[in-house]
Nucleic acid binder design. Sequence first.
DNA 1: CGGCCTGTTCCGTG
DNA 2: TCACGGAACAGGCC
Length: 260
Amino acid sequence: MPELPEVAYQKKYVDATALHKEVVKIDFGAKKLFQSPQKEFEDAILNEKISGTQQLGKYLFLKITSEKELVLHFGMSGKMEFYQHDEVPKHAQLTLFFEDDSRLSFVCPRKFGKIYLAEGIEDFQKKHSLGNHALDVKEEEFMDLLQDKKGSIKSALTDQHLIAGIGNLYADEILFQCKIHPKTSTAKLSEKEKKSLFEKMEKILKKVIKSKTEDSKLPESYLTRHRKEGADCPDCKGKVEMIKISGRSTYFCPDCQVEK
DNA sequence: CGGCCTGTTCCGTG
DNA sequence: TCACGGAACAGGCC
């Protein structure tokens, strides 16, 4: 569940289910996810409420009435689960029990997620040298960020220190829709290409958020719908190919996205 | 059984 | 120092 649009969905989910309820008990799962001692989480959250939520890239911030932020990173497989029954979901790593007997669990089977306690969002952003939330970045800033960047454009788009929120899946989608080969060096991109990357980034992230919240499918024209070796390119006669870039599976159409 | 997966971090190499 | 590839983490799903 992990790139910006999926986290946006998790934010809405928490907003709709778990705000303004007193936490009367906390259960902890695998220790490796917790970036502070459990005692500190108890002190910050027990007998307090979640007063609101914020998002920065792939991170979700739950504002606690103690003024601390409970920060969640979903890794590859994390998600929130709110429920009224008694069985705690499998792989729940943090469960907040509310006064009305409802519960909110952070479920994370692969345990790649992380759970932090922070003083504030800006503080956290600085400490982890995160870029700005991809949907808050303006065109001018985007152009500046890519200015002196070395390496491939795909690595730049997924670099969380540069822009926060784009992962493997939607980086491929952005590049596909811009007809740019993922291995293209950032330095070689024209102004026009960089502008189109910016525009598609916004358009795609917003579209995916909408599809998540409305539970609708992405258009057939999206590469995401054809993310499989040998699949038909939704835009030309080409066949989708898979290559590895920085160890990550990268899907693209060799006919549309010609390497220069 | 083996390969793949929306993420991050660490280590070796060039 | 920098960029990249590969491995590791761990479970579910083909």
